[in-house]
């Protein structure tokens, strides 16, 4: 319960910090941190408009997508407590409940019959498929180190015992952050700011959504950011007391948001055809990590 609440609170500020970081990098003052939330609140109070070519699937999609993120959040542990529920193999549940939400956004996009949205859906499907091995290899590695199969147990056992676990935590944090940026369709894979439909991935899939539905989709992104950053925070918290771990959690969220902002400020986006290479490189990095752990634990 605590983790759920903490992630929700962090999600309110995450995008605001990203936007603010980008503004400062540009030499502008930037909007207030809560501006993205004001926008979402405004959208949530509006009605939705539906295209006449779309069916019920399109109308269900935003709610299913949002619900899938809430469900995934429930298994994330934090600060020594488990999530709302926890069981052996809950990280598989985590991955596939997110995939379920993504499946709905894809068929929702196809439902509109727009050629743009079909293109976006095909890209999103490809990139999420490629990022899946990276996530499972990473969780498999952590499971191998700790000998456990649930988020709560894995992170509780993942102590900073030796220098190798520092290295593992650093690489795992990097991989998780990258997965987070790919899953959230941020730079360098996707550009959330662009107005060019032909280059979009996620944005083009939600072109037809409006009002309340759009608000849900936008807040789902914030929650996803906060949730992945919570996983990163878990790598560093271990079994620290709450009065240390809660500030550490918020510090990690803040650092992640700033890193996202800085990445988006100082580099160009990848060419679409290079995205696949980049994501596969991420998987191979985790494979190295996995083999390294196998070697150190004497499994091979």
């Amino acid at each position: 319960m605590i983790s759920f609440a903490l992630i929700f609170i962090a999600s309110l500020f995450f995008t605001g910090i990203v936007v603010r970081t980008k503004s400062i990098a540009q030499g502008r003052k930037g909007p207030v941190i809560l501006q993205p939330m004001y926008d979402i609140w405004r959208l949530l109070r509006k009605g939705s408009v539906f295209s006449t070519t779309s069916s019920m699937i399109f109308q269900l999609t935003p709610s299913f997508y949002f619900a899938s993120i809430l469900l995934a959040m429930m298994v994330v542990p934090l600060c020594g407590t488990t999530g709302i529920f926890s069981f052996r193999g809950d990280f598989i549940f985590f991955a596939y409940v997110l995939a379920f939400g993504k499946f709905f956004t894809i068929i929702g996009a196809l439902d509109t019959g727009s050629s743009f949205e079909g293109m976006g859906a095909s890209r999103e499907a490809l990139f999420s498929m490629l990022v899946e091995p990276a996530f499972f290899l990473l969780m498999g590695t952590l499971g191998l180190i700790t000998g456990n199969l649930s988020f709560a147990d894995i992170f509780a056992m993942f102590h900073f015992g030796s220098y190798t676990s520092y290295a593992f935590a650093a690489i795992a944090a990097f991989v998780l952050l990258m997965i987070c940026m790919i899953e959230n369709s941020r730079m360098p894979v996707d550009d959330p700011k662009t107005h060019l439909e032909l280059t979009m991935i996620h944005e083009v899939m939600v072109l037809d959504n409006s009002g309340f539905d759009l608000g849900l989709i936008m807040h789902a992104t914030n929650l996803k950011f906060a949730m992945y950053s919570a996983l990163i925070a878990n790598l560093f918290i271990g079994d620290l007391a709450w009065y240390i771990s809660v500030p550490v959690f918020f510090a990690v969220e803040f650092v992640c948001a700033v890193i996202v902002g800085i990445t988006e400020s100082f580099m160009a986006r990848y060419r679409m055809s290079h995205n696949a290479q980049f994501i596969l490189a991420l998987s191979s990095l985790t494979l190295l990590l996995f083999l390294g752990v196998m070697a150190t634990t004497g499994k091979i």
Binding site: Q26, G27, M187, D191, S265, A268, R269
Partner: peptide, 16 residues
């Protein structure tokens, strides 16, 4: 051109 490749720094500086 910087905007279209999502290179924010170039977009901001050349724009200014």
């Amino acid at each position: 051109i910087c905007t279209d490749i999502a290179y924010q720094l170039g977009n901001a500086v050349f724009g200014r």
